[in-house]
Amino acid sequence: MQDTKTTNILMAGVGGQGVILASEIVAEAMLRAGYDVKKSEVHGMAQRGGSVTSHLRFGTKVYSPIIPDGEVDILFSFELLETLRYVHMLGAHPLIIVNNQKILPPSVIMGKDHYPDNIPDLLSQYCARVHLVSALDIARSAGNPKALNVAFVGALSRHIDIPESIWHDAIAAALPPKIVDLNIKAFTLARQNQ
């Protein structure tokens, strides 16, 4: 393999959306594709409903398990507001892939804070390439809204140049056998979605 610059994917979302499992699948795919891979996240305090991030890096040789500020190549965000939290980490020619879903944080639920309007427009001020994906709809049409995270990985997979079969293998390695087919269906629908 040729020496390649490290690619940095910052995954963001809300506890319960399956961010960590999605990052497991992407990391496993990159390992199978022959890259050095590192991935880092923080578990601990009851994370249900809290902000979740996973740093995923791959290339010929990866040192740090966390992405330095200003070096995110792909911001892969499962929730609209969470995307905004990390735009300061974007690198020089970034891509934002954002799931078109709003999950209201507690202070908004309580009526104390305002959920920002027009987030996709705001994002386009920071990044020339913003892809909006309706992963929940895709998961539903594949048969189960819980496949949202794997469907969303399908949208990411279009921007990573490895064979599709590796993705399927990585999904099969990460999930219980009985839900693999449904998840690959969700993955494929999102991958093909233009």
């Binding site: 994370q47 409903g49 809290g50 905004l84 300061h88 944080p105 507690p106 202070s107």
Partner: peptide, 22 residues
């Protein structure tokens, strides 16, 4: 510190999303 800071518009104040009891 690195000299070039990306020239980006400032963000609105973002509502925090702390962990919460289920």
């Amino acid at each position: 510190s690195r000299t070039h800071k990306p020239d980006v518009p400032s963000l609105p104040a973002l509502p925090p999303r702390p962990p919460n009891m289920c």
